[in-house]
Nucleic acid binder design. Structure first.
Length: 429
RNA sequence: GGGCGGAUACCGAAGCAGUCAAACGGGGCAGACUGUAAAUCUGCUGGUUUUUAACCUUCGAAGGUGCAAAUCCUUCUCCGCCCA
């Protein structure tokens, strides 16, 4: 994996770059559509490609429970299983264990509970060793450890894998946040150790791929005057790329300490977690500001679970390169569509630089009555399948009548919007 | 012609004397959604207002009993089913 920064903003910490992997190039800042259970809901991989998605996110937790990582491995890995030939990043399952592993009939614990889903955490038992939780599918008990999470992700065959962390809820007490951060660091160490041990030995790295080797040396020459080899970043040999996750909640010193700890592990990328868990946006940006000075310039920075378009813009300004979020896909399914509020190509005053544009988008609820007779397209400036071919009135009709096509078209549109958003961001840097 | 059963808000359907403007579904309207237990969830859905409260009008129609009726009685209208 190479990460090459092509341009840096003079005014902000924003960077435009490219991540080169054995499975393809990722333009950054990038948005990763979420394919939790091995599919971006309602979309085929070919459609994702058509939208310009370069990397998607899969999930350890869900694929572990169903169909099981061993089955995916037997299928030839997640890429082959789901027929997606571009990079995949897998989340470690840390987030899920804390958001949903409760037993049936358990009551809420106001102290431990969090999130709008109101899911109690009391059945999740966190210890130094790992996490015990109950499957929401059949109630079976499972024990997830950093090592197990790593092995699952290796079995899935992801290109980038996330360290197993304790996603600190919001709000959290200082004590909780500190303990959570400590465990996250300890687990990150264990993850790194496990991955280092499991790393594909370069001498044995499958059958040498001549094409890859040529591309490899070309890339090295092109991108770096001196080959960049540290941490295996300097070649395209299949390898597991591990991201550590910074925690520390809303406490400045904890976030700084966590950043130092995680960065100190010298992993392939750095993620900021414990964010977008219900905290106000200012708190999230504040956390980014605290952490920014510690992020290694040469490595990709990934802000987990974020977010709304304006949050992504703000985060890019603070040096973030990678994003993932359920918002575009979930909102699409719920009939909430992202629409540009003006034409960037036409409106010279507002449209040039997305960093300067204010209120650059709106969200419309397509099921609203006012769209019943609206035969215009959802977004005139959008070139997606929905906007090219169908009207708001038709999409509304599909939603009202619960026709599956509506979900698909809406998902395509919202992802197209996010892809376009990232393109505009890159162009603005 | 005779007998039985039914008629409740946009639809379906509970309620069968007071705590009923009336449960529950569906439909409709609006909103929420941030490392996806999420094609989900929440609120509203007779009217008006000073909208965590008050008043008015509603349970096929018209009368009646009773302090009080969607609930009991009488007649009528319509709809099922059964017998001639």
């Amino acid at each position: 994996m190479f990460f090459k920064i092509l341009k840096k903003s003079k005014k902000t910490k924003a960077r435009w770059g490219k991540i080169y992997t054995a499975r393809g190039v990722i333009n950054t800042p990038c948005f990763m559509p979420i394919a939790t259970r091995g599919a971006v809901k309602n979309l085929a991989p070919s459609e994702l490609e058509g939208l310009g998605a370069e990397i998607i996110l899969g999930n350890t937790y869900h694929l572990f429970l169903r169909p099981g990582e061993k089955l995916v491995k037997k299928a030839g890995g997640l890429h082959k299983f789901m027929n997606w030939n571009h990079p995949i990043l897998t989340d470690s399952g840390g987030f899920q264990v804390f958001s949903l592993g409760q037993k049936k009939g358990e009551t809420r614990s106001p102290l431990l509970n969090w999130g709008r889903a109101g899911l109690p955490r009391s059945s999740v038992k966190i210890s130094e060793r790992g996490v015990e939780f109950c499957s929401p599918i059949d109630g079976a008990k499972h024990f997830l450890t950093p090592e197990k999470s790593m092995q699952i992700q290796l079995d899935l065959g992801a290109d980038m894998i996330m360290a197993f962390d304790e996603c600190t809820p919001y709000p959290a007490t200082r004590e909780y946040a500190a303990e959570s951060m400590r465990i996250t660091f300890d687990w990150a160490l264990r993850c790194k150790k496990y991955i280092d041990k499991s790393q594909i030995p370069s001498s044995k790295s499958q059958a040498p791929n001549p094409k890859l080797q040529i591309l490899n040396s070309k890339l090295q020459k092109k991108l770096f005057k001196t080959p960049f080899t540290k941490g295996g970043m300097g070649d395209l040999t299949p390898k597991y790329f591990l991201f550590g996750i910074i925690q520390g909640s809303t406490f400045k010193d904890l976030r700084e300490e966590s950043a130092k700890q995680i960065v100190g592990l010298d992993m392939d990328g750095v993620a900021i977690g414990g964010v977008s868990v219900g905290e106000p946006q200012e708190k999230m940006l504040e956390a980014l500001d605290w952490v920014a000075p510690f992020l290694p310039e040469a490595k990709p920075h990934y802000l987990m679970g974020v977010g709304y378009p304006e949050q992504i813009v703000e985060a890019v300004k603070r040096g973030i390169d990678m994003f993932d979020c359920v918002i575009p896909t979930r909102n699409a399914r719920h009939g909430a569509l992202f629409v540009w509020s003006f034409d960037f190509a036409q409106d010279k005053r507002r449209g040039k630089n997305i960093f300067k544009a204010k209120n650059f988008y709106n969200v419309i609820h397509i099921t609203n009555k006012k769209f019943t007779r609206d035969f215009s397209s959802v977004d005139k400036t959008c070139g997606c399948e929905l906007c090219r071919n169908f009207s708001r009135a038709y999409l509304r009709h599909l939603f009202i009548t619960k026709e599956n096509l509506g979900l698909r078209l809406a998902t395509i549109h919202n992802l197209a919007f996010y892809m376009e958003l990232m393109r505009k961001i890159r162009e603005s840097i």
